[in-house]
Amino acid sequence: KRPMNAFMVWARIHRPALAKANPAANNAEISVQLGLEWNKLSEEQKKPYYDEAQKIKEKHREEFPGW
Rank of each mutant, 00 (worst) to 15 (best):
I30Q: 04
A19L: 13
S31T: 10
Q33L: 14
R15K: 13
K46A: 02
E63K: 14
A28W: 06
A21E: 13
E63A: 07
E44V: 07
E44N: 04
W10V: 00
K47S: 07
A28N: 13
R2T: 11
V32F: 15
D51I: 09
R61S: 14
E52G: 04
Q54I: 04
N22L: 05
W67G: 15
E63W: 08
A6L: 00
E62T: 15
K20R: 13
A17E: 07
K47I: 07
K59I: 12
S42Y: 01
A21R: 12
K40T: 05
V9Y: 06
P3S: 14
H14S: 08
A11P: 00
K47W: 04
K57T: 09
L34H: 00
H14A: 09
Q45F: 03
A25L: 15
K57F: 08
S42R: 02
Q33E: 08
K47F: 03
W10Q: 02
L41E: 00
I56N: 14
E58I: 06
E58L: 10
L36A: 11
F64V: 12
K47E: 10
E58A: 11
K20T: 08
E44C: 12
N26C: 09
K57L: 09
N26P: 04
Q33T: 11
Q33A: 10
N5S: 14
V9W: 01
K55D: 14
K20P: 01
A28R: 08
A25F: 09
A19E: 15
N39I: 01
E44D: 12
A6M: 00
A53S: 06
E52P: 00
K46R: 04
P3C: 08
N39W: 01
N5P: 02
Q33N: 12
G35D: 15
V32Y: 14
E63H: 08
E44L: 09
E29A: 05
E63L: 08
N26W: 03
P3E: 14
R15H: 02
M8I: 08
N27W: 09
L36K: 14
W38A: 00
I56W: 15
E43R: 07
I13V: 10
G66A: 13
P3Q: 15
K40D: 03
S42H: 02
R15E: 13
K20E: 09
E58R: 12
F64R: 12
A19V: 11
I13L: 12
W10M: 01
P23F: 00
N39C: 05
I56L: 13
H60G: 14
E58W: 07
Q45G: 05
H60C: 14
A25D: 04
I13E: 13
P65C: 13
K1H: 12
Q54C: 07
Y49W: 12
A53C: 07
E58N: 06
E43T: 10
W38R: 01
V32R: 15
A19T: 10
W10L: 01
D51K: 10
R2A: 04
A21F: 04
K1R: 09
N5I: 05
N27M: 07
E43C: 07
R2I: 01
H60A: 14
E63M: 10
Q33C: 06
A17R: 15
K57S: 12
K55T: 13
A25W: 15
A53Y: 08
H60E: 10
R61M: 12
S31R: 11
Q33I: 15
F64G: 15
R15C: 03
A6C: 00
K20L: 11
F7G: 02
P3R: 11
V32T: 14
A6E: 03
L36T: 12
E37Q: 07
E43L: 05
E29I: 02
K55N: 08
D51V: 10
A19H: 10
L41P: 05
A6F: 00
N26A: 11
E44M: 09
E44G: 08
K46N: 00
I13P: 01
N22Y: 02
E37S: 05
K59M: 10
A53E: 08
R12C: 04
A28H: 06
M4F: 02
P16E: 12
E29C: 01
E37L: 10
K40G: 06
I13N: 09
K20Y: 01
P16T: 14
P16Q: 09
I13M: 12
G66Q: 06
D51C: 07
K59Y: 07
S31D: 13
A11K: 02
P16V: 10
N27K: 13
S42N: 06
L36R: 14
